[in-house]
Amino acid sequence: MNDHNALSRRAALVGLTLLAACSRPSEPGAAPSAAPSAKVSRSVTIKGSDTMVILGQRWAEAYGASHPGASVQITGGGSGTGIAALTNGATDVCQSSRPMKPEEKAKVKAARNADAIETPVALDALAVYVHASNPIASLTLAQLAKIYVGETKKWSDLGGSDAPIILYGRENNSGTYGYFKEHVLANKDFASAVQTLAGTAAVASAVGSDKAGIGYGGIAYLAGVRAVPVRKDDASTPVAPSRETALDGSYPLARSLFFYTAGAPTGEAASFVAWVKGPEGQKVIDDVGYFPVPKR
């Protein structure tokens, strides 16, 4: 009996270690991706940006309602994860909250023998969250950079309370992480003290319960936190993230959200992408809290 126990315990531990060691290397359910014989399969798999997961789900629901028989499956994991999945053929469409890098496009081309096709589908304003009680009036991009590389350590240095600044951010596979690092930190390293949380909602909720906290993420996640107006530099006026300021380009942290496909989408995926760009799909964006792509 005790030997059984020891055995099962050992098995459990081995299983645990196995889990820890191989947590996310493979893509389960990456069935040899939907055969391109369009008429047969009416399912579309979409994977990528955590910022876009909610948006994608709403699209999937609305699309499914008006296209009986079609099924659209959305999973998150981060833009990087989605791009990796597109490269190895595990997803039809990749959602990304940052543009693909040239070397990533080259990998898709090499692996799938088709160009990565970029489709801007929505506009997002990256908000800087603080606790609702934080009195700070605005932050310049330079101040934000200093905060996140760890040079500015106290709110009092910015005219706030005496508390130390508690930094929250995203995991390094997140498109939001990449965008912030590139556009705010000018590619400098984040401070070691940045707590990395899985998902924008987790960042917003952490800041919401931390009076000295600061975080960043999509504008759709403002419940319980305050979005600080951002200034491009000392000379410019503070701009709060909103639909107008994102659309007219005055908000410094506005970004496009993309779909990527390997080659032009075919079958149900093509129909879905076209629908998203159409009036019905763009209406959903409004409801979620992002902004439709400006018409050119």
């Binding site: 820890a20 060691a21 191989c22 947590s23 996310r24 290397p25 994991g77 981060g78 990087g80 994860t81 990796a84 995991e171 390094n172 596979n173 990395t196 899985a198």
Partner: peptide, 9 residues
């Protein structure tokens, strides 16, 4: 660290 990063690397 493994759980957060292995999916993207």
């Amino acid at each position: 660290t493994i759980a957060q990063e292995l999916g993207e690397v």
